[in-house]
């Protein structure tokens, strides 16, 4: 996993609540057996005017000029500003894969759906929960200033606005550590092989019906 320490980048606002994982990456793109290449189909149904299918040349497709990511002022955005319950719906990790492949490393929202939130951390994306008033203020500032950028510092757990104002945010210490170091969860867990084996032996004795063969 790619480390995340700090980032200063353009912010793109997605002003709707309950953005679901079907909207983030529609199902026809889940047929891929790869982890990469989902970026061109991020928000496919909002972003393009035609019906997207795997294998299309996305550079030739008609763009929806009304969709925020198609507006020139948000090109190169790496921070997504979102509304409540972002990432609800399915567990598809293709959603964070698509966001990451597009270039997003930070998502700011008043709340996230649990599975999506968890999946972000496994892929080097930092989802940050801010209170609703702060989110509202950021939406207003992004709208008012073209080229609006934020600096997000995970080490300091701090967001700095262009005017120099700062916001602090909470993040789970274990997840912060993994992101800062780019750590592989499986490698960490396998440091506890003996504990897993011991648990398993005890469980096998107590509840043998859970073990076949």
């Amino acid at each position: 996993m790619e480390k995340f320490t700090a980032l200063e980048a353009i912010v793109a606002p997605l002003d709707r609540s309950n953005v679901d994982t079907d909207a983030i990456i529609p199902k026809q793109f889940l047929k891929s057996i790869r982890r990469s290449g989902f970026g061109p189909n991020l928000f496919d149904e909002w972003r393009y005017l035609d019906q997207g299918e795997p294998g299309m040349d996305n550079s030739q497709r008609p763009l929806n000029p009304d969709f925020v990511l198609n507006q020139s002022r948000y090109q190169g955005a790496q921070i997504l500003l979102a509304r409540e319950n972002f990432g609800c719906g399915s567990s598809r990790e293709h959603a964070p894969w698509a966001l990451l492949d597009y270039g997003f490393r930070v998502i700011l929202a008043p709340s996230f759906a649990d599975i999506f939130f968890n999946n972000c951390f496994k892929n080097g994306i930092l989802p940050i929960v801010l209170d609703a008033a702060s989110i509202d203020r950021l939406f207003a500032e992004v709208a008012a200033h073209e080229g609006y950028r934020l600096r997000v510092d995970l080490e300091q757990q701090q967001i700095t606005t262009p005017s120099g104002a700062s916001l602090t945010f909470e993040v789970d210490p274990f997840r912060r550590h993994c992101l800062l170091e780019g750590l592989d969860d499986i490698g960490l867990t396998l440091q506890h092989v003996d504990a897993i084996r011991a648990y398993e032996a005890q469980r096998r004795a107590e509840a043998p019906w859970l073990f076949r063969g």
């Binding site: 982890r35 399915s90 567990s91 598809r92 990790e93 964070p96 599975i115 968890n118 999946n119 496994k122 892929n123 969860d185 499986i186 867990t189 396998l190 897993i196």
Partner: peptide, 13 residues
């Protein structure tokens, strides 16, 4: 439900 990274994690550990 879990994501694919966790599918791999459960398979491995």
């Amino acid at each position: 439900g879990i994501g694919t990274s966790e599918v791999e994690h459960v398979l491995a550990t």
